[in-house]
Write a protein that binds this DNA or RNA. Structure first.
Length: 357
DNA sequence: AAATAAAACAACCGCAGGCTT
DNA sequence: AAAGCCTGCGGTTGTTTTATT
């Protein structure tokens, strides 16, 4: 590969913010002569800039039909949605947002959306609920240090451990439900969101939440299974480890309900196919088969199952075969019997909620 | 009001790959 | 086929603005 001569050019050329005069010169030249070669434009336009800088300035700020200003709620949702499928392919994302440049979208992501997702407990890279690894690390240290040998202090540790694990899983479960509510189908289902965040819910029992999740599945035409969409599974193996250590049975291995098994089986057969295509109203773009790291909850309904299960994440697919959403619930129920000090209301209160429109 | 920190924005840099000679 | 040119992309850095103390 041959290096660009840009570096040599930068000797003596101006850097930094563009002045209105420079903008004027560039606009005038491009409007009069067209773009042509960016390498020659600075000289021809009378600018002491490198061609690269001119191209960037034109592409991101000066060309016609640039849309500046705050992103709308719809644009935000679309960026999140597309990023969940494409990753940091800013130019590809930009093609779906007329008037927005890849640079602007990238900056907006890094300064706003990334933090927003983190605040919602969602990993902005994987678009999955972020596991609280600090807690798990602490639990692991506790286990290794204490050995759980049967003394009174070890028993105390074990009980505390159960409460921590239960609380962690509850938080993740609620976060996951919120994620489904807010990002799974392009636009948030705010009716459900409002229902979910309404004050009485804080007094609900876990079974009520499970019922809610089932209603959502039904309401969404059965195309979404929470055990597929909520990435709690890897944590379940961790849970099993801790349950064993504290003397409880890990979640039972059980077969999937028929609909889930069907989805899993059909998806498994598709693992060699190229990834799904994004359909966004008028245009369609292919996603390279090599795009590997974004199995996402926020995929469109047509592509969701493919994205979720087709992930090359072996841990995810392997554990999918041995655990389920309801199995996790079973474990939580066991823990809940012991976890009288930290109820669901506290979990709900601790959640960070996305703003309603 | 001044100093400092944090956030937001704009631009630069290096690399990869397509195109031309 | 190889070398050079050019463009586009994504990550990073620098600057400016805003908020906080």
């Amino acid at each position: 590969m041959v290096k660009s001569p840009d570096r040599a050019e930068t000797g003596g050329v101006k850097k930094g913010p563009w002045t209105p005069e420079e903008d004027g010169k560039l606009v005038e030249y491009v409007e009069k002569h067209g773009r042509g070669s960016w390498q020659r434009i600075p000289k021809l336009a009378g600018l002491n800039r490198c061609g690269k800088s001119c191209r960037l300035r034109w592409t991101n700020y000066l060309r016609p039909n640039i849309r500046r200003g705050k992103f709308t709620e719809e644009e935000e949702q679309l960026v999140i949605h597309l990023h969940s499928m494409l990753g940091n392919k800013w130019s590809s994302i930009a093609t779906k947002l007329p008037g927005r440049t890849d640079n602007e979208i990238k900056n907006y992501w890094n300064t706003h959306l990334r933090k927003k997702l983190i605040g919602m407990g969602i990993d902005p890279v994987t678009h999955r609920p972020a596991a609280n690894l600090n807690i798990l690390t602490g639990l692991s240290n506790l286990l290794s240090a204490g050995g759980l040998g049967g003394t009174a202090s070890h028993l105390d540790n074990a009980l505390k451990l159960q409460a921590d694990v239960a609380h962690l899983l509850k938080l993740q479960l609620v976060q996951s439900l919120i994620q489904v509510l807010t990002s799974s189908y392009g636009t948030p289902n705010m009716d459900l969101m409002n229902l979910f965040r309404s004050p009485p819910l804080g007094n609900y029992q876990p079974s009520d939440l499970l019922q809610l999740s089932r209603q959502m599945e039904g309401g969404l035409g059965g195309s979404l299974s929470l055990q597929n969409s909520i990435p709690m599974i890897p944590n379940l193996s961790i849970l099993s480890h801790y349950l064993n250590n504290v003397g409880l049975q890990p979640p039972p291995e059980r077969s999937f309900p028929s609909d889930v098994a069907a989805v899993t089986a059909s998806d498994a057969s598709r693992t060699e196919e190229p990834r799904a295509e994004i359909s966004n109203n008028s245009s369609t773009s292919s996603i390279p088969a090599s795009s590997s790291t974004h199995p996402l909850v926020s995929a469109s309904s047509e592509t969701k199952n493919i994205d979720l299960v087709q992930s090359s994440d072996n841990l995810y697919t392997n554990t999918l075969a041995s655990a389920s959403f309801e199995a996790c619930w079973d474990s939580l129920m066991k823990l809940d019997n012991l976890d009288s000090d930290f109820g669901w209301k506290e979990v709900i209160d601790q959640m960070s909620w996305p703003d309603a429109p």
